[in-house]
Structure formats: C-alpha cells, structure tokens
Design a protein around this nucleic acid. Structure first.
Lengths: 134, 134, 134, 134
DNA sequence: GTGGTCTAGACCACC
DNA sequence: GTGGTCTAGACCACC
C-alpha cells in the first residue's frame, strides 16, 4: 500500500492520511485483520513526524477503523454491523452535502444519477474482488 | 431567509454560514440575482463578528456562488453552466467520499441506492417549486 | 477552580486532569455553559505543557463534557439526556467493577450498601445546591 | 476456569487477565487456597507471552489476591479481613468514580440506586452459592 | 486573544 | 520490536 501526503496542500497532514486509510479499508484494499505498517515505519516512508501518524492511528481506532495493541501493532478492525438511527441521520447528511455540491458543479439531476449508479457498481465490484482475492 | 449559527458546535462559524447559504442557493430558496443582506446586517442578526461574514461572502464569491458589486451589495450569482473535466473530477471525488462514508456507517449498497434516489427525487421537487414560486 | 496534577504519580497527567474536570462537572462545581480557563492559562497554572491541556480539552469534547470554539475558548457542555442500551451496559460494567473492588477491600455487602447510600445522598445534595446556587 | 483475552481490544492483555482473575475470586469461582494454573500452562492456553502471565501473577500477589510459593505454584490467597482507614478511603474513591461515571452516562440518582441494589443482591447470591458449592 | 497542527526528540509501557 | 505520553516551541486558523 502506498500513501501520499502533501504538507503544502492546506489540508492537515493527519486528515489527508486518515482519509486515504479509510478509503483503502472501504474499498477492500486493506482487508480486515491486516496489519498496518508501524507508526515509525509509515512516518519514515512519508517523511512526516511519528506523532502525526500516531494521531491518525489513534483517531482511526476511536472511529472503529483500526484496532491497536501495544507491543503488537495496529490492525484493520472488523467492520461494525449496526445501522441505527444515528447512522441514518449521518447518511442523510452526507447525501444532502452531495446534492448541494452537485448543484454548485452545475451537475443536473440526471447526470448525477447516472454517475452515482456507475460509481456504485464499480464500488460493489471492488468489494467483491477484495472479499474473494485475499 | 433565516440563518443560524452555533459558536459552540465545534464547527467554525464561517463554515456553518457558508454551507447554509450554499444549500439555500442549491435548493432554490435564494434565487439568482437576489440581493443578500449586507455584511453588517447579517452580522448583527447572527450576533457574530462582521469580519466573519465578510470572509464568508468573499469565499462564496471566489466559488462563484455570490457576486459582489462595490457600493451596491452582494447578490446570488448566475449558476455556472459549464460542466467540464474539472467539475467532473470534483463530482467523482464527492461520490467517492460518499461511498467511503457509507461503508464506515455500515450501509450496504442497496440501502445507499434506495436512500439516494429518495433524496434525489425530493431535491428535484424543491428545485421545481423554487423555479416556479419566486 | 483549582486543579492539581502529580507528574510522578505514574498516572498520565492528562488522565489526572481529565478525571478532575469530569468530577467537577459531575458535582456541579463547574456549571453548564461556564467558560474553562484557556489552554495556555491552565498549562501555566499547572506548570505542564499546553499540548497536554489541549489533549485533555479535545478528549473531553469528544466525550461530550466540553464544547470548544476556536477563537472563543472552551465551555462546559450541556449534559446529554439520552440513556440507551449502550449507557446501560456501561453502567452495569461500572457496578461490577465496584463490587469486585469492594470484595478486594474486604468490604461486606452491608457496609457497601450503607456507604453507597450515604455517598449518593451527599451527591444529590451537592447537585441540588449547584443547580440553585449558580 | 476459562480465561479469555483479546490482544486487539485496546486494553492491555495483562489488565484483561488480571481483572478476570480478580472477578473470579470476588465471585467465589476461585476459592481460597485453590491452585492457579502455572504461568506456562496459562500462557499456552491463552497463546500469550509467559512474561505477561508472570507479570499478572506478580501484581496480584502484591495486591494480596494470590500467594506464590516457589516451586509449588500460585494459590488464591486468604481474603484479608482488615477494613482500616486505607480501605475506607479506597472505597470512597471507588464510589466517587462510580457517581461521576453515572453522571456522564446521564443516569439519575434513582436509577443508579435501583441498579445498584439489584447488582448487590445478585452478587450476594453468587457468593453464597460459591461458599456452599465448592 | 482563542484553540489546532506539526515537528523533534526523550522516555515509558507492553509484548 | 511495538505504541503511548510528554515537553518545547513554531506557526496557523479563527474571532
């Protein structure tokens, strides 16, 4: 796995790294139970401070994406299965944001629908391959 | 139009206000060409610092949502009609973000699809009414 | 309000401070909406690093004890009112821990009961005074 | 007796094991004088490092829960019967912690009381059975 | 003024 | 070896 951060992008480094890891997990590139590189290793590779990587791992653990064991390392957590009212409202929020952004990009409803179904199909595919492959 | 900001919400005030204005524009609550309240007026109404409102208007102008004419005030800009490669990649990005978030919320593809079409229909409705109404 | 930390106690400083603030909130010494000292101020007062205080404030915000607004400061949050199944199981856990500890301290069930009701009464009292007082 | 540890739970393994043993003793599942499995045996069974088990036994001995005789093995210690001022203040501390946690969980005083008496009754029951049974 | 991010580097806890 | 805590201090974002 390769990660990439740009310290001059204006987006905090730890946010950039967090989003990349979340995406890798969501697309099956990182499988459940898989070991993450150590804090020091990843810091070296990205030439950022170990503290920054540590912060990312800690936040991802709190969000249930990673699991960390002192002395052992960090691992991709099992995906949680509960979809409750809190998740529902978060999803609604995310969908609203998408529509507002689409409007700003002068994307009409039909184009948005087409693009969405396309992406969704691609995503399902990647997930299936991830489940079979590894 | 009524806006609302909560200084204690953890989300920067200027972000809260910006998103509300963008949403109002995207749903047709604010029509093209409509005049926005003055910086001072809005600041008073929300009891926030005028600098914060000014920043919001400036950023929205840069993003093409508002247009400001010195001495006259700020107005809702005409919606940009060009959907080019830059817009395309922005849309792709937004869609990817949505899928990653859905995964994290343990929303499966079918639920996501159902929710999306629902929201999209509601959005089309609001737009149509906005176009007729005002 | 006076806080106190001992860097040589073996318990991380940030844990010590966190627990003291939580206790102050729980007993009404810190009222809802009250402003906390700034990160720098509290760091100076305790002669610890501002980063350590910042970490405490951030964790307490995530736990819903404080609310932070950039540029304004940190404030005691409104107490959340939802008591769901997750809270229930946390409470059960806390009670089990208490019983195990009581056993280890050779406290019999009757003594534990007596002590508990005593403490509970005292706690109710402090809360009532806090609600009236401020 | 069966113990169970999860290296990925975020809680140090030695803490998990310690708490389980303490709880087993406190509920009478492990009787006074009963022999504990050897360090190696337990390490094998849990597939953890023998050093970790050894550390647990050492700490439990310091806390008066176990007694170790060189060459013979480890045994559940006799329960200490002295309830002095030190025990008293420990109990007070534990009770305070409980109330603070209850507050944070938005548990009101009446619910806490009800839950506490319930748990206490269950605990008395288990102790009685333990004393008769084994 | 307020809090947030990041670096550099020390030292500790866990396995 | 692994991650966790803490300091010292720079610089940025927000109001």
């Amino acid at each position: 796995m390769w990660y990439y951060v740009d310290p001059h992008s204006g987006i905090p480094i730890y946010v950039q790294l967090k989003e990349q890891i979340k995406k890798a997990v969501a697309t099956g590139l990182l499988a459940e139970g898989q070991q993450m590189p150590s804090v020091r290793e990843l810091a070296l590779q990205l030439t950022i401070n170990p503290n920054t990587v540590a912060k990312v791992y800690q936040e991802l653990e709190r969000e249930g994406v990673l699991q960390t064991a002192r002395g052992l390392g960090s691992f991709v957590a099992k995906r949680r299965k509960d979809f409750g009212p809190q998740q529902e409202s978060s999803l609604d929020n995310a969908l609203e944001k998408l529509m507002v952004e689409a409007y700003q990009l002068s994307v009409d409803a039909d184009t948005l629908y087409a693009r969405f179904t396309e992406k969704l199909a691609a995503w399902k595919d990647r997930l299936k391959k991830g489940a079979e492959g590894q």
